[in-house]
Design a protein around this nucleic acid. Structure first.
Lengths: 217, 217
DNA sequence: GTCTATAGATTGATAGAC
DNA sequence: GTCTATCAATCTATAGAC
């Protein structure tokens, strides 16, 4: 019974450690998103999760290692969403599902998206290896699928990369530029605005590549 | 003849001052873009333009004032580009010209776009007033024009804001996420890739809102 | 494992010679 | 106007009591 109990529900030592780590990672994600790596301070992260600054260094040896863990967690979430791009489905189903999932991600994980944007904006000093391995191979498989659709005459001939960039850019814009959007909107987007925006993005892109989209799923 | 001459061409005192200020602003734009406000240091900016750190404080009293000047300069460039959205032209001409200009901006002023993205990402602490005044009124006039097009049956009915966000997101992505794009591309985009990307963005968006686009201008 | 106190390094900003 | 030297504040990281 040497361990301090804190406010969290008690559990095994491993569970408590995991809980504390997650609390720190959540706080760090928010601070890194709003201030960038350079602008964020360990003190601000500590305050955000109600822990002394020294505890952060106990769980994550350095600011850079903590940041790396934050970015890795975000990449994992992104990868799971990326799987919603079903390479066996029709173009309409595959793209619609992927876009809808990406829009949902922008809505639910705004800070994660912002941290990722920040990282790429600054030349990806931490995640360059992910870009060159995981992201590149994911992209190449999808490029191949889109080329097949084009060869089959299912969609108009467009360079697949420009299409993917368009989907990434448009969906992530709703997270990364949320502040600008909310300023122009005089407040956060309502649920029906999110739905309408999602449907508009889907329909413009699908029509744009020659598909006449049916009703949303 | 008390003034030091330096490497620049000599001129009036005012011209020299302007020249030095611009050199500092150029350097600052690059450093702020790559590191963010918090990550950038006056030393790094000074090194980048080959001046002692103290000189930066002589021309711009503080880091924040220098940053503000950088952001203001970028906003001016953005505004000039925004004028290419001709409210008297047909939807096809107006949108195509606007998209082409925005893509050109992403290519020519990558760092400016990155600084802007950084600023909005972090909640626009410096430029909030621009968002609420200039950007908001520009947007409202364009929203009105797009609604008129819809009423005339010239384009499909879509919420004008989502369409504008799509154009902003997609075009700016080529600057803000240039590092990711270049990693996937195994190098910078070639001239013909820029042209193809621009044409693809135009054609998808125009077809997406119900316009059958002709040949590019 | 948790917390206080502090070391060690860096940074924005300024003083003052030239 | 330019530059060197330096101050005062801040930050990452750690030492050491509990």
């Amino acid at each position: 019974m040497a361990q301090t109990e804190g406010a969290e529900k008690s559990g095994t030592r491993a569970e408590m450690r995991e809980e504390t780590e997650r609390a720190i990672l959540d706080a760090a994600e928010g601070i890194f998103a709003e201030a960038g790596f350079g602008g964020a301070t360990m003190q601000a992260i500590a305050d955000s999760c109600g822990l002394p600054k020294a505890n952060l260094h106990y769980y994550f040896s350095s600011k850079e290692k903590l940041y790396r863990r934050v970015v890795e967690r975000i990449f994992t979430v992104w990868l799971e969403a990326a799987d919603s791009f079903d390479t066996d489905a029709t173009p309409e189903v595959a793209l619609r599902r992927y876009i809808e999932r990406k829009m949902q991600l922008s809505r639910d994980y705004r800070y994660g998206s912002k941290v990722w944007a920040n990282e790429v904006l600054h030349g990806a000093p931490i995640i360059q290896d992910y870009l060159e391995t995981t992201l590149r191979s994911w992209t190449e498989t999808r490029v191949a699928v889109i080329r097949r659709w084009i060869a089959q005459g299912a969609i108009r001939p467009v360079e697949p990369r420009w299409l993917l960039y368009m989907i990434w850019a448009t969906t992530q814009h709703y997270a990364d530029f949320a502040h600008q959007i909310e300023t122009l909107n005089h407040g956060p987007l309502e649920a029906d605005q999110w739905d309408d925006a999602t449907e508009t993005v889907c329909s413009i892109i699908l029509r744009g590549i020659g598909i006449d989209p049916g009703a949303p799923a």
